[in-house]
Amino acid sequence: MYELFKARAERAGAEVHRFTTKAEAEAYIVDLFQKEQVRDETGHLVVWADCPFLDEALKERVSTLPGMRFTVSREDANAAWIGISQVDGALAEIGTLVQDATAIDKRLVSMLPEVHLAILSTKTIVADMPAWIAQTDTSTLGSYMSMITGPSRTADIERVLTIGVHGPRRLVVCCVDEMGGVA
């Protein structure tokens, strides 16, 4: 399932990485911060949406880094380089992330920054849209469900594919096999 998801998500222009443990994923993320030179400056912040992955221990560790924001305003999100949120599942057949984005911070961090980094528990990947719908309790559907497949794109000028119109130019998916306590 993971392999298919990865292949399809990459075809849609996403970057997909797999980690066995949460600690490995964290290390990758911190490394990414360095590479992207995030800092306490407009245009270079990191905005984190509240999520199980971002537990107290992780928060403590990264809060020493410059440019981190854990409560997200639209101004901060608009001034961020990277936005991080955890998603709830994925559809392997089409390489799509699924997220209950009712909480406003989840939407802001995945829409406004240049890079969206999505945390995905490998276990939550399902085959396709019908499989996801079958396991969804429609009576308690979140107010704002999001599906994300690759970065923002357009082909409105001469049908030339161009990445990053109104949303992130880069979508990085971190799949974690063992979330360790967190879902």
Binding site: R11, A101, S143, M145, M147, T149
Partner: peptide
Amino acid sequence: ATAQLLTSYVSMITGPAPTD
């Protein structure tokens, strides 16, 4: 429409969601 498996984004809105 565009020979894509899915568009980049699908939003499913069921009632009002929180604002910032």
